[in-house]
Design a binder for these strands. Structure first.
Lengths: 183, 183
DNA sequence: ACATTACTTTACTATTTGGTCAATAATGTT
DNA sequence: AACATTATTGACCAAATAGTAAAGTAATGT
């Protein structure tokens, strides 16, 4: 009963994820958010709450989408551990040349500009980073680099930041090569 | 001729560096900046220009201070290459427990929240990152890990981001150990 | 002592910010 | 057809934002 929603919830969540991903929390104004989602302020408040809540919804969407996809790949038993880490590092190289990839990693962006000032943000960022860490450890389990899990984990996210700084595909390929040489 | 400055230029630059380091570009309001520097808006404009200029001055100060100190250590021929990389990784672990260290790395912070939107910022961030990259390569030159320079470089800055996300000393120590095991 | 110079301060402005609210519109139910 | 319920909209608000300009003040050389 009542008037039905005119928007697709998942589309809006993706739009929220993207606008915060590209612009950061403070960098995304309501003008940006309204344009990205196609919704007016009032609707956003009614559906998701205040700006901070919008941001947390965006982070949750990222975790359920991008992070979960990565984790699933890293835990895919249809591939060898080396193949999985190779795929991870290839995705890093590719990120240097895709639109979203050049926005960096939403987790890293959130870690830098919001985690220190907002405990809920810090908590969800840490949880997503931990999921990646665990998944990388699983993928490395039967490789020569089983004892280098945190190093590879850190290098992966470091690479995402390098991309955001404007890093070229060349340097990313160096990181990729040196990482895969550990396997 | 004329009245001389009443403030110590270097103190103000350090204060600017710190306030942007802790809060980011948009996160640092003039209220914050005035409090940190002890100067009023008018003086700041007269001495350094608009907010963007203040930020670039802060980045320049960081490069001349923190970055140059790191580079000098990595190029210190009084130490072996291994000793220098060990010192670098120890500084990473220490950063997890100091006030400034928990603010992350100003270069990474700038890469995330300003580099994509401001070409001058991107340029200076890239230059500083490159200086670190070159210095790490020099330090590794005579070690077993001479061919892993970009990996260690990326892992170092990745570690700085992990710290900003709230990473504990424990995980930083793992990164440190796994990196030093390459030498 | 004085004129010059330049720094400091205060008050002000135009814009943008996140957020609210009452009016309107679209549905299912009675 | 009338109603209750929920969604959408656009006007509105107070606070904060970066930036400016004029007036005041202090240090210098002559």
């Amino acid at each position: 009963m009542g008037r039905p929603r005119e928007f697709d919830n998942d589309d809006v969540l993706t739009a929220l994820q993207d606008v915060f991903w590209e612009h950061g929390y403070e960098g995304a104004s309501y003008a940006d958010i309204m344009k990205a989602t196609g919704l007016k302020k009032g609707s956003l408040y009614a559906a998701f709450g205040d700006k901070r809540s919008l941001y947390l919804h965006a982070l949750a969407k990222y975790d359920k989408g991008n992070v979960s996809d990565g984790v699933a790949m890293l835990r895919n038993e249809g591939l060898t551990g080396s193949e999985r880490i190779s795929a991870l590092m290839q995705s890093l190289v590719d990120a240097a040349e895709t639109k979203r990839g050049r926005w960096g990693c939403l987790l890293c962006n959130a870690a830098v500009d919001q985690a220190p000032f907002d405990a809920p943000t810090e908590k969800v960022v840490q949880a997503s980073l931990q999921r990646m860490r665990d998944a990388i450890a699983v993928a490395l389990k039967d490789t020569k680099a089983a004892d280098k899990s945190e190093l590879i984990w850190t290098a992966y996210f470091g690479g995402r930041v390098i991309i955001k700084s404007g890093g070229t595909k060349t340097v990313l390929k160096a990181i990729q090569g040196q990482t895969l040489a550990l396997l």
